Amino acid sequence: MNRRAMIVRCFRTLALLLAPLALSACDSGGGSVQQAQRPPLEGAAIGGPFTLVNKDGKTVTWDSFKGKYRIVYFGYTFCPDACPLDMQQLMKGFAAFQKASPERAAKVQPIFITIDPERDTPQVVGQWTAAFSPQLVGLTGTPEQVAMAAKAFAAYYSKGEKTEGGYLMDHSRIAYLMDPDGKPIAMLPVDKGGEAVSAELSKWVN
């Protein structure tokens, strides 16, 4: 699947997930200011239980992060451009937020989940995430475990064509911000740079 088709599919999936939110906004009955301050992903069917493993090969579940805000991004370490760029901006924004509000940043856990478990072993994921931040947790698992996690977060991915350097993966590029109960709050604007990510974190993390 080419990148254009992948992007179209991703947006169609998000449109289905966010449709109920658009309807509720239309029925807000004059509470436009209050509505604007509510989490944009409030009530969306995003997030859910999973069982994966960390860089040490230890089992990690969604509930392992209960009580913390969570940033969740699905990608893969052999990604030649998108994932490194997104992680760089995401962690740059997190670092800026941490510097400005260390107490609030301590409540946030950034998480990277691979969609390429065939190559992304715990050690590989651990080394890759450490290059961006020691606070970025990298997770992998069996193909079935990864598929279940991706489905819970409406993350699209597909194995692409083989190249001289190996195969590539088509995948959605979304960084979700989840609340301490594991419910969706917003999509972090990694495409707009670290400052935009920091501003969004500052807006929603209490």
Rank of each mutant, 00 (worst) to 15 (best):
C26W: 13
M1G: 08
V53K: 04
L201W: 07
K55C: 09
A106Y: 08
I113L: 12
P122L: 04
Q135I: 01
A19C: 00
K92L: 12
R12I: 09
F78K: 04
P134R: 12
P134M: 10
G57D: 09
G30A: 02
I174S: 00
A196Y: 04
N54W: 06
R12A: 12
L177S: 04
A44T: 00
S32K: 09
L18G: 04
C79Q: 01
L136M: 09
A15D: 10
S158Q: 15
F50G: 07
V53F: 02
G126Q: 01
M178A: 08
I185M: 14
I113R: 07
K162A: 15
D56T: 05
V197G: 10
Q88R: 13
V205P: 00
G182L: 05
F74C: 02
M178N: 05
G31Q: 15
F65G: 01
Q35K: 05
A22R: 10
Y167F: 15
D86H: 13
L52Q: 08
C83K: 02
G165H: 12
G30R: 02
F65E: 02
N206Q: 07
V205I: 06
G31K: 15
G43H: 02
G48C: 12
Q127C: 08
R70T: 06
Q37P: 01
I111R: 00
E200M: 12
I46W: 00
P180K: 06
R119Y: 10
A95F: 00
A5V: 07
Q145S: 05
M91S: 02
P143G: 11
V8R: 02
K192L: 13
R3C: 05
K151F: 11
F65A: 03
Y176S: 01
L177R: 11
R3D: 12
R104K: 15
R4V: 15
L136C: 08
L168Y: 06
T13N: 11
Y176M: 01
Y69C: 05
G126H: 01
